[in-house]
Design a protein around this nucleic acid. Structure first.
Lengths: 197, 197
DNA sequence: TGTACATCAGTGAACGCGCGTTCACTGATGTAC
DNA sequence: TGTACATCAGTGAACGCGCGTTCACTGATGTAC
């Protein structure tokens, strides 16, 4: 990890993989999923159009890498929120629900790579593991609610649906262009608590 | 509306507008939103690539037309479901929630044109009217629940989020590849009823 | 410490492709008188 | 009933474009001896 000979434009980039991921996200932020192209990523990273193939194989590869990162961050945010909550099962559930929606708002482009039907390599084990980890946080939190057994699929689906639907509809401005989100989110979380009581 | 001179390939098509909408939907069904192109629509309708412009102006135009149809159908399905329900406010809400999810499953491509971030002309008044109609069915049903005033935005957002989140997650197989949907849907609707009690 | 060599991470040019849109046009239709 | 003419709904060719991917290559790095 030495300094390259010519600091900011060596033949070898240093960490092109990371740089490509960053430009890809900037591009997604700027143009949306439909405007995402590998060539533009390469261009913005100041690198030839063939370079990304060395790190990601193809377009699906880089999107899969971004989705994996996103899932890991989402899972981490939910875990952190649960840990910092008041510790009661319902408090934890609220905290992770809020973390889910907050993540969608803070990282809309990653969130959309995960859930927006872009081409992902679903056989990628890192992606699957990251997804399972995020799902696991929700499932175990629900399993800890009073009176639950081991079969909580319905409640997991209920909680996920409410929070995910809210995040996507709000992101796409379906509740109104300038609608403040926080009171609505509070209302959704309270409603979810009643639904799972 | 006479028969054309040569029945199935007259110079004038007869109803190219309708035919293009149908091929567009078939194409969306087959290739997904990312694989949708105007040229392929024209090709499948057996017409030159320039023909669609006469009816829809551009690509956004045909997608907007499809979204408008979809919203109208969705609204109609919800209205029908409410009318055929047991008539109690909660029964109506359940019925329209079920109608929403059922529509998403029956017409996944129209549903995705509406909500899938394809380019739509949001200034189109027919689209806006159809959207408002669908939204209105939900809002008025919730307003009819016992003890509601005129400000039910939070409850509307809650109901919409739950049902929309469920529909999108289920359509994208996030509850599992071969998961039967009906029991989950029943659970979500029951949970929503508790949340709005 | 020096050197041969394998490997890594880039280049740059080219491949073949399909896209949305525009344009001047023409054949068919329908309407006014 | 006939006819001139406006309008409608198509054609076909071309525009310019950017895309993903592949290929043989080469410069830089690192390692074995």
């Amino acid at each position: 990890v030495n300094e390259p000979a010519t600091p900011d434009r060596a033949y070898h980039h240093g960490d092109l993989r990371q740089a490509l991921i960053e430009t890809a996200e900037a591009l997604l932020a700027e143009r949306g999923p439909a405007g995402f192209t590998l060539r533009e990523c390469a261009r913005r990273a100041g690198v030839s159009v063939a370079a990304p193939a060395h790190h990601f194989g193809n377009m699906t590869g880089i999107l899969t890498a971004i989705a994996t990162l996103g899932f890991q961050e989402l899972a981490a945010a939910m875990e952190r929120a649960a840990a910092e909550s008041d510790g009661t099962p319902h408090g934890q559930l609220r905290a992770i629900g809020r973390a889910y929606v907050t993540y969608a708002f803070n990282q809309p482009h990653r969130f959309r790579v995960i859930f927006g039907r872009l081409p992902l390599d679903k056989t990628d084990s890192a992606l699957a593991a990251a997804g399972a980890r995020a799902f696991g946080v929700l499932a175990s939190t629900i399993a800890a609610l009073p009176g639950r057994g081991t079969q909580n699929d319905g409640d997991v689906a209920l909680a996920w649906s409410a929070v995910h639907g809210f995040a996507t509809l709000a992101l796409d401005k379906h509740f109104g262009e300038d609608r403040p989100i926080e009171p609505l989110l509070e209302h959704i979380l309270a409603g979810l608590e009643r639904a799972l009581a």
